[in-house]
């Protein structure tokens, strides 16, 4: 990114130059704003998954980043060996499906016991198990794939929005994420199954008296939540590239968003996600790119000092 001072000085009246500088300022600003919005929305996929799983099972899955990574790897393998570069969107869907199945299996084997009376200290169990899973999966990925970085083919060539240059991959990932988020929202709010999920999140006993098989829905929810992360991984594969640790940054961003937004609020996540993306992008552009990690956390600290449960978070009801 070129800093403003590197733009060539222009001849002409100072007023003319001022106008041109302003135009450049606005131009750059818009470009970074758009990048910020795009990245923000992409990180939201992760947070949506984390939040959804928490809503249904009151469990925070610390290994979401690894499902992101699995999605990315699956996408890479599919594109390289099966589908070719043109059908990348099929790859995204298939990768999400693979991660869904994996997530459902993991839930069935490791998480379900929490809900059938086998496990005593639930929160402790969930935290330790998901953290261990994260590290387990990360290291297995390194053991299998080696510490290499894999580059999937581009999804689309560089394009423009109006006059702003934009990476085709980012635009496509952005649109994909919007579609996924939209589908997810529609699914939760308008479908019978979505209604059941809301029921499970709001009244676990009450939903059982309605005839909903909560244990099955727990499993589905975990699968869907991880599938969102996996889809994110597949969409972002050409941008973040595919390697065993590619889920780390999205995890951090995903949780930052959750802390800023507070658990339990879908619109809150969008607001927080966009804020984070924009803060990051503008900070990198106009302050310094090497501190990219810190801008989100500055935002986080500011928000938390005013609202310790996050922007829209509700304090956990003491049972």
């Amino acid at each position: 990114m070129r800093s403003l001072s590197s733009y060539p000085a222009n001849s002409g009246t100072s007023k003319c130059k001022q106008k041109e500088d302003e135009a450049i300022d606005l131009h750059l600003f818009s470009q970074f704003l758009i990048t910020g919005i795009i990245m923000g929305v992409l990180y939201c996929l992760m947070s949506m998954g984390i939040n959804f799983i928490y809503g249904i099972m009151k469990v925070i899955n610390w290994s979401m980043g690894e499902f992101f990574m699995i999605g990315a790897f699956t996408q890479y393998i599919l594109l390289t060996f099966l589908l070719g570069a043109d059908y990348w969107y099929v790859g995204v869907i298939l990768s999400a499906l693979v991660v869904f199945i994996l997530g459902a299996l993991v839930q069935r084997i490791l998480i379900k016991p929490m809900f059938v009376g086998i496990i005593e200290a639930k929160m402790e169990y969930a935290t330790i198990v998901t953290i261990s899973m994260a590290i387990f999966l990360r290291n297995i990925a390194v053991a299998i794939g080696g510490p290499k970085i894999y580059t999937p083919p581009d999804y689309a060539g560089p394009t423009q929005i109006l006059t702003l240059p934009l990476s085709g991959n980012r635009l496509v990932a952005f649109i994909g994420a919007l579609i996924l988020l939209g589908l997810f929202y529609y699914f939760i709010k308008k479908s019978w199954t979505g209604r059941a999920f809301q029921g499970v999140a709001q009244n676990r006993s009450g939903v059982q008296t309605a005839g909903v098989n909560v244990l099955k829905y727990d499993m589905l929810a975990f699968g869907i939540g991880t599938a969102l992360a996996g889809a994110g991984g597949a969409l972002l594969a050409p941008i973040f590239l595919v390697h065993p640790l590619c889920g780390l940054v999205p995890t951090v961003r995903g949780f930052e968003i959750i802390v800023i937004a507070g658990l339990g609020s879908i619109p809150g996540i969008l607001v927080a996600g966009l804020s984070l993306g924009i803060a990051e992008s503008l900070g990198s552009a106009f302050i310094s790119p090497s501190f990219v990690d810190i801008y989100g956390f500055i935002l986080l600290v500011i928000i938390l000092s005013i609202k310790p449960y996050g922007l829209f978070g509700k304090p956990e009801r003491e049972v």
Partner: peptide, 23 residues
């Protein structure tokens, strides 16, 4: 704050401090 939120807040604290020392 207890339970899940404590884990999240302490995680955030850890990341903020770590990033500070890095940056």
């Amino acid at each position: 704050i207890h339970g899940i939120y404590l884990a999240l807040i302490t995680w955030a604290f850890a990341e903020v401090v770590r990033n500070y020392f890095r940056l």
